[in-house]
Amino acid sequence: MEDTVEDLYQQLIMERARAPHYAGRLVRIDGEAEGDNPMCGDQVHVMFASGDGDVVQEFAHQTRGCAICIASADLLGDVVLGRHLDEITSTVDAFEEMIRTGTRPTRSEFDKLAAFAGVHAYRSRRRCATLAWQAARSAIIRMMEAHHG
């Protein structure tokens, strides 16, 4: 199994599922959203802090779910910190496109995120990978609306 399992349960995914870097709550929250998958009970809560600006300064998530779900919520943190809100929504789009098609985008932030490309082959697991990202999009859109009225 060890060799055939690599396309889905890559080392990076297992590491971040076991010991997520961004699990927890933020003290100051400028944007947040929850996502849940009633089919399996997976729940994710993503939180962002951006001060008064459009750049994400802090990120945290509370995720209850499978390894794919937890790892994808955590790797979201790697790509949002220090980035503009509108850049993030385009990364979220590209991530969802990758899960849908199985094709890895050429953008540099996908060096690590490409670990999830294998999820495409598992229709029933795609939602596990995108749950946190969809929640992030709703949170960020609300933050942008709040900032720019």
Binding site: M1, T4, C40, A67, C69, Y122
Partner: peptide
């Protein structure tokens, strides 16, 4: 500590 979805996918691989 192992979610049922992971169990099912890893069994499917076998």
């Amino acid at each position: 500590r192992i979610h049922a979805h992971d169990v099912a996918t890893l069994l499917d691989k076998q």
